[in-house]
Nucleic acid binder design. Structure first.
Lengths: 340, 340
DNA sequence: AATTGGCAGTCGCACAGTGCGAGTGCTAAT
DNA sequence: ATTAGCACTCGCACTGTGCGACTGCCAATT
């Protein structure tokens, strides 16, 4: 069994390794930290830790580095949620200053988070699942193309192009627009589908096919509106930490560009005791991110909608600082977007 | 003076170097290409080319590699616009199949382009400068916050958040919405500002301050709507070509994330004889991209609006293929978005 | 005048050999 | 349980060396 002091040893191994990127040996531990025991004792503790698979020696007679399991124990039991530095608080305050449109807010948030953590930052758009339709707009583009715009009361805007097979006169467009808005403005996205179905029948026979096409597309759009979007910043930071990935960071960058993967990962993560959910190393292997860790937490947008934000970086990252930053930014963003 | 054959030599040096990433020597040239002369003759030509600063030897007695100037001459005079391979054409056709909303189209386009070229691909959103206002929507969020949505007839949607200082009743919002739409629906973005100014005066005195605030914000939004946006894909490709950048690719990735930089660069590039504009190596030094090349061309969105798309990669890239791909994708996108 | 074969000279690079130092595990003593 | 001592293991940085690729120049050839 690993002793109390043994866990302290694990803690400093994680900290020192994260800071220096070098395997840490028993000697350097007693030098840098006041343990009050000799190096040999530390060595015994380290042997225990290695038996428990919490640390490994990359090669005979070098210092030890934490395993994924070691990081897990560190995060769950040992990490002190270090409060943000004054400089970091200042950065958040600065950012809070101006508010613009929603896209802009999320872009600024994600940049802020990436600067605070020096990692890749991710912010999920608020979900539209519980939103209500605020307005539908039809925009004819040329003679055979129509753009539909769906605005929800949570501020989400979805647009879509339709190639209409038959001529669509301005008159029909205007009528359709009016009827659509009358029918579904105010209804929840979940119910909008049924409200739409009845519309085509109210048109003269010769317009039914084309109107049906438009309405069908709109129904698809309503259904598809639930898929989520991500904004991202700080991919350059991945390069900075390149040495922490054994092979190339190419597959990591690929996984990141494939947002679907990340969204799935986001979906699977549940918050832990600190409110920040952490997924470490091989726990992400199925997503091609076996050497990366992901920290996320939720934030609330308007109308109580929940979405997530977080950071992604090498397994060897500063969990204490990054967890604190993620939590702080989520709070600020919630306040900024919330209903008050 | 560089002879006709000398230029041929430059051409094969560029081609071979791009393909192999290794300095090319006189021997390998006569081996791989049927020049009908001996290596010594090629050596003489190469000495000439070096005098003209078109190629250099990275170190004594190694093969030669093209200079930026060499690439420039290659692009301007020697590159054959190789037609796309059947596989590439196929990829474009596949992509053409489905059409969805505008964001979706641009995202798919940029991914396609990055796959065709194996470089970072960039697509600029169509400019809104000449657009007309189609609809304005006001969405109250909570009690003290309002979201404004501006839809143009080119399919661009701009949204923005306002913190209203005073209570804004639903009644006032509805009235304001109606008046706004009556006043500026159909006017060009350029004229919208003046049309808006008169609105606040038509409200009862106690509502004037808050209405003025909303209208002012909208005017800003109209003015700001001209700033452009980029979508991007394939940053992972930069990592693949990392060896082509002398230092780290970190500054390159940073410059790319700073979209303002790229937009400025886009703005400065004029198409050349082939319709594709090329900026090579140190020509981009002011943007932190001194070891990169950028190929762009224009495409036309609906209503004849012009925007640009292109790729960015290491100076040592396959210009022939990439120029062809950029041109082909621009054509397809123009057809897809065009008025017909 | 252009081209060619020959030849000496240069220099990067891959490779093997070596010594150093950091760190470990084990054991016997406290 | 803790400690000092010690033999042992390896990674790593350094060095020297031989090889090969390529060039530039020159005298001979067409």
């Amino acid at each position: 069994m690993v002793s109390e002091r043994g866990l302290d040893v694990l803690r400093v191994i994680v900290k020192d390794y994260v800071a220096s990127r070098e395997p840490v040996g028993s000697k350097s531990i007693v030098d840098r930290h006041a343990f009050g025991v000799s190096a040999a004792t530390i060595r015994n503790d380290m042997a225990l830790l290695e038996e428990e698979d919490l640390i490994v020696a990359p090669h005979t007679s070098s210092g030890r580095i934490p395993t994924d399991k070691g990081y897990r124990v560190f995060v769950d039991h040992l990490a002190d949620l270090r409060p943000l530095s004054p400089a970091q608080r200042h950065a958040i305050e600065m950012f809070l200053g101006a508010s613009a449109d929603m896209d802009e807010v999320l872009v600024r948030t994600v940049r802020l988070l990436s600067q605070l953590t020096h990692q890749v930052a991710l912010v999920q758009y608020p979900s539209v699942a519980h939103a209500r339709v605020r307005h539908i707009e039809l925009v004819p583009l040329g003679s055979a193309r129509l753009m539909t715009v769906l605005i929800t009361d949570t501020g989400r805007v979805e647009q879509r192009l339709i190639d209409v097979r038959e001529e669509l006169t301005d008159l029909v467009v205007a009528e359709l627009r009016a009827k659509l808005n009358a029918a579904i403005a105010g209804t929840g996205l979940a119910d909008a589908g049924t409200a739409l179905k009845a519309i085509p029948a109210t048109f003269p026979a010769q317009d039914v096919p084309v109107v049906t096409q438009v309405v069908t597309s709109l129904m698809e759009q309503v259904a598809a509106g639930r898929h989520d979007k991500l904004v991202m910043a700080g991919t350059a930071n991945l390069v900075r930490t390149e040495e922490d990935f054994s092979g190339s960071i190419y597959p990591v960058l690929e996984a990141i560009e494939e947002q679907v993967t990340l969204l799935k990962l986001f979906g699977e993560m549940e918050p832990d005791r600190t409110g920040v959910s952490v997924s470490i190393g091989r726990e992400n292997a199925q997503f091609g991110l076996g050497e990366a860790s992901v920290l996320t937490t939720g934030y609330t947008a308007s109308r109580g909608e929940l979405a997530r934000l977080g950071v992604l970086g090498p397994t060897r990252m500063d969990y204490s600082n990054n967890m604190a930053a993620v939590r702080a930014v989520a709070r600020y963003l919630s306040r900024l977007l919330g209903d008050d």
